[in-house]
Simulated scan of single mutants.
Amino acid sequence: MFPLIKMSLKSRDNDDSFDGESTLKEELNKKIKEQKVVVDELSNLKKNRKVYIQQRNSNIFFLADRAQTLGSCKGKLTFN
């Protein structure tokens, strides 16, 4: 009887870790999709358009170079 209890506890622990992994995977996929949208938007801008980047944890935006911003966003998508 005791081995069955241990097995059921083990499977529940595995389910919890699986749920955590799937949630993490979904969150990562969401961030990747968002980053791809940003890259596409920057890629399709006309050359004379201005680009602003937001200061972290702030509502302040700074004028940025479009090419550098695009390169930075593309770099976030590459995996080392």
Results as ranks from 00 to 15, higher is better:
23 T>K: 13
32 I>L: 09
52 Y>A: 06
68 Q>G: 07
35 Q>S: 06
53 I>A: 14
11 S>H: 00
24 L>S: 10
53 I>D: 08
34 E>Y: 02
22 S>F: 13
68 Q>I: 12
31 K>C: 01
52 Y>D: 04
25 K>I: 03
56 R>W: 09
1 M>F: 11
64 A>I: 02
44 N>A: 14
37 V>P: 08
19 D>Y: 09
42 L>M: 00
78 T>E: 14
69 T>R: 08
76 K>H: 15
1 M>D: 08
27 E>S: 09
34 E>T: 10
79 F>D: 10
71 G>S: 04
33 K>Y: 00
16 D>T: 14
39 V>I: 13
40 D>Y: 06
23 T>G: 06
46 K>W: 02
25 K>C: 06
16 D>I: 15
36 K>N: 11
2 F>I: 00
36 K>A: 11
75 G>A: 15
25 K>A: 02
36 K>T: 06
34 E>I: 08
27 E>M: 14
55 Q>A: 01
30 K>M: 07
54 Q>D: 06
70 L>R: 10
30 K>D: 00
63 L>G: 09
44 N>M: 07
43 S>M: 04
73 C>K: 13
13 D>M: 10
46 K>L: 12
47 K>C: 14
72 S>F: 14
45 L>E: 03
43 S>I: 03
4 L>T: 00
52 Y>P: 05
47 K>A: 14
22 S>D: 09
36 K>W: 11
70 L>I: 02
79 F>I: 11
32 I>W: 07
6 K>N: 06
30 K>L: 01
26 E>H: 02
25 K>E: 04
20 G>T: 13
79 F>K: 12
67 A>V: 12
50 K>P: 01
49 R>S: 13
58 S>Q: 03
56 R>F: 07
29 N>E: 15
31 K>Y: 00
42 L>C: 06
22 S>A: 08
60 I>P: 04
69 T>A: 07
2 F>T: 05
63 L>W: 04
11 S>Q: 08
18 F>M: 02
6 K>T: 06
61 F>D: 06
79 F>T: 10
61 F>G: 01
65 D>V: 08
36 K>I: 01
60 I>E: 10
80 N>T: 15
48 N>R: 05
37 V>C: 10
17 S>F: 03
68 Q>N: 15
40 D>A: 12
53 I>T: 14
75 G>I: 03
74 K>W: 04
18 F>N: 07
31 K>I: 01
42 L>W: 02
1 M>S: 13
69 T>Y: 01
60 I>R: 07
60 I>F: 05
66 R>M: 13
67 A>D: 15
75 G>W: 10
63 L>M: 09
67 A>P: 05
33 K>G: 03
2 F>L: 03
9 L>S: 00
32 I>P: 05
15 D>Q: 15
5 I>S: 07
40 D>L: 08
13 D>Q: 11
33 K>D: 11
7 M>E: 13
56 R>T: 05
12 R>K: 14
60 I>H: 01
44 N>H: 05
25 K>V: 02
5 I>Y: 03
32 I>F: 09
9 L>G: 01
26 E>Q: 04
39 V>N: 03
44 N>E: 14
48 N>Q: 14
25 K>Y: 00
47 K>W: 13
53 I>G: 09
39 V>D: 01
78 T>F: 12
51 V>W: 08
45 L>F: 05
59 N>E: 12
33 K>Q: 11
48 N>F: 14
39 V>P: 06
35 Q>G: 02
16 D>C: 15
62 F>I: 00
61 F>A: 11
67 A>G: 05
4 L>E: 00
59 N>R: 11
24 L>M: 08
